[in-house]
Design a protein around this nucleic acid. Structure first.
Length: 277
DNA sequence: CGTGTTTGACCAGCGC
DNA sequence: GCGCTGGTCAAACACG
């Protein structure tokens, strides 16, 4: 997405800058340094603008869908009705949910005090898409798959793999009636930031397009309490997340090492001018 | 070779 | 105690 490439450009820009801050660079490099610095500042301001726009849009989105979205904690997931348009399919998804709920209800009594948060996400998928993948902005590692009794479609089990210590699990199963509908049941809360801002946008857009559950941009259940807290803490978090995204982009992007190598070998200027064209 | 997925085996909880 | 079921493990496999 655009924001992602922007952050990548930004990281490359920063990298270029740091490379060029080697002791006593030649005059042509100083000129380039100046240009890159300006470009970097422009990108930074663009990024800030985008973040503000994103915040505003997201706030609007939450206002729009908040009242209808089911607060999908274990207690509220089934009590609040989903939007009428999705009523039938949600009920059919409920077939799958019932097994989850009944399984969880057994534990409920025991774990009432310390049970992890459970929430659900309904996602429409292409009928031809047979994968049990719900793109919610986090990295998941599949650790099991099982065919359950009340649904011929297999249920897939995932763990959050973005952070080794993250306790969150999710189960994804197609609705027995509507095979286009994926029901993702999340368990626990993430103890880290979302892996990708682009994925966040993806998740949010999916939600507006066809999903109808409590699901914040951070992939956590969107309760009023947590929402208020996050609104307050958003700006510092956002900056920190951007920094992490940048670092992540640096380590993941093979092109970055090529840029570094090119810069070091003196081909940097050629690449830079070529990019401008 | 490292990482993620698949899949059969295993385990624990529950109802009868 | 036994069988059923959901959830997890871990070896084998696939892929980049």
């Amino acid at each position: 997405m655009e924001s992602h490439s922007l952050s990548l450009d930004l990281t490359i820009g920063i990298a270029k800058q740091s490379i060029l801050q080697e002791p006593s660079p030649p005059p042509c490099l100083q000129e380039e340094l100046k240009r890159v610095t300006e470009e970097n500042m422009k990108l930074t301001s663009m990024l800030a603008t985008m973040c503000e726009s994103y915040d505003a849009l997201r706030a609007q989105l939450i206002d729009m869908i908040g009242p209808t979205a089911a607060v999908a904690s274990s207690e509220g997931a089934r009590s609040s009705s989903p939007p009428s348009a999705k009523r039938k399919s949600t009920e059919s998804a409920g077939d799958a949910d019932d097994s989850v709920s009944s399984a969880n209800s057994c534990k409920k009594a025991k774990e009432e005090g310390s049970k992890p948060k459970i929430w659900k996400l309904y996602a429409r998928t292409d009928p031809s898409d047979s994968s049990l993948v719900v793109r919610d902005g986090y990295q998941w590692r599949k650790y099991g798959q099982k065919v359950t009794r009340d649904n011929p479609c297999p249920r897939a089990y995932f763990r959050c793999s973005f952070a080794p210590t993250c306790p969150v699990k999710k189960k994804v199963q197609r609705s027995a009636d509507d095979h286009c509908l994926l029901v993702a049941t999340y368990e626990g809360e993430h103890n880290h930031y979302q892996s990708s801002a682009a994925e966040v946008e993806n998740a949010v857009s999916r939600k507006t397009a066809g999903t109808a559950d409590g699901f914040g941009a951070a992939g956590a259940p969107e309760t009023k309490d947590s929402r208020g807290e996050r609104e307050e803490a958003r700006q510092p978090e956002l900056r920190e997340r951007l920094v992490k995204d940048m670092a992540s982009s640096l380590t993941k992007d093979p092109n970055f090492t090529a840029v570094i190598a090119a810069a070091i070998s003196g081909r940097f200027l050629g690449i830079s001018t070529a990019q401008e064209m």
